[in-house]
Amino acid sequence: MRAAVISFPGSNCDFDMLYALQDFGVDAEIISAKQNSLTGFDAIFLPGGFSYGDYLRTGAIARFSPIMSAVTQAANAGKLIVGVCNGFQILTEAGLLPGQLLPNATPGFICDEVALHVANGETAFSSAYDVDETILIPIAHAEGNYFADETTLNKLEKNGQIVFRYVNNPNGSAHDIAGIMNEQGNVFGMMPHPERAVDAVLGNIDGQNFFKSILSGILTKV
């Protein structure tokens, strides 16, 4: 499996993501947002950070960077697209995932480790977790308050597109949403950082099964 980690100006979790992927034996490399091709990659990761300084709105400027046409093309071709934190914000701004991440309901940056409930354990991003499992994953964001209109939320619920939910909602997200996927099940975004919970030396390995899910899905397909 070959994976691309997109580095936008202001990304700061790109190397964390690269490290996690390489830890699982993935042939991963950093690709600049100024590039315009993603040919040959099976999975594309949009990492956390503050792309373009979070100017205007989080992800609003990044979605127009040159690489994003290639990301959209890859998404339409059924490749796996994963956005974490700022990556999630970019995917919603780009319209690849529904809704928007608003400023936290209680304004301010939250840096914490929170419990997530695996709401759908039968996705390319969660299949290695047990159904209804509760996991602990770090969060670090000021704009993580997931918003979508009622129609969209009902659709997400009905289609099982909500993959992870907060056990104790930290930011005001509608329906306690921490991570969602598109209807086709190949584009995924979450605010928490599974790539920061893969190494026992850091005291938390609850993110490992996130990467194992993605790997097993892709290896089965190939």
């Binding site: 205007l56 709105r57 609003a60 127009f64 701004e93 809704g99 928007q100 608003l102 918003f147 979508a148 209109d149």
Partner: peptide
């Protein structure tokens, strides 16, 4: 296209 997010 850019200045607003029409969701909100």
């Amino acid at each position: 296209a850019l200045l607003i997010n029409q969701n909100t």
